[in-house]
Amino acid sequence: MSTAIAARAARSPRGMVLSAVLILAALAIPLFANGYALEVLSEAWFYVLLCLGLNIVVGFAGLLDLGYAAFFAVGAYTAGLVTLKLGLSFWFSLPLAVIAASIAGVIIGGPTLRLRSDYLAIVTLGFGEMVRIAVRNLAVTGGASGLVGISRPYLFGYKLDTIGSYYYIFLALALLAVAASHRLENSRIGRAWKYVRSDEDAARAMGINHAAVKLSAYMLGAIFASIGGCFYAAKMTAIAPETFNFNQSLLILLGVVLGGRGKIPGVMLGAIVVVVAPEVFRDIGSMRMLVFALSLLLIMLLRPAGIWPERWRWG
């Protein structure tokens, strides 16, 4: 598989050079950017991770998910509970978050295997709300005020407590997510996702286990969000249930659809747009969200398959 990727990269040296330049630019930004810009860009990288995770479910496997923030919450609360309640190092929360997210992915994926489109949307929306309401009402998760005082982790002896360090953490996570998405897309399971997405019955009739294929999409998507959630908790040091509401799920989905579901660079672009655009429009004050909404409408009218769509035909 890696030979196939290398072969394709060799076929487009321009793409390679462009990626290298962009990565170097992203690495250099903290040398001159101010705290505010770093804050916004860290969030943009964080959304690249989340959107690429959701893209596995929505883009690669073609399943609608309106409750994706729940998996983000699973990661954030795992990190909070591991450090505050168990008193363990932050780094223990990563493997636990992966396990918790896999279980959550199966919980949402299992009952929804037979559902399609609108029905799937409603059930996933319900799941997202259930997780938020559960952490809001449980004593161990701190109720409505959430968990406060999550300690900052150390990496190679350095305490991760500046915005610059989180900028690099989220940039690294975003790049890892891009690499993982590429590997997954070109893997056996990635092809299975596309076959099931295009025609579930034809795929089953050719020997593809559609249940396992869909569950793996939910699980892998959940793992992306949950790892992101761990680092989000470390960066914020405080987490509350309202962060993981329906709007959050919708914003992540917006990044995926806006950018072009299924297309990795498209989804990255979409994620950056949903974070950066409202900040660009900040100067216009109260009209900000209106202008943001109108520009989204315009993009979807002019580019219905997303800003940078997949070659694939939907339907």
């Binding site: 034809a202 009739a205 050719m206």
Partner: peptide
């Protein structure tokens, strides 16, 4: 036991 469903069901776009 392989089934070729009605309407061919090839994967267009691939």
């Amino acid at each position: 036991l392989v089934h070729v469903p009605e309407g061919r069901r090839i994967f267009k776009g691939m």
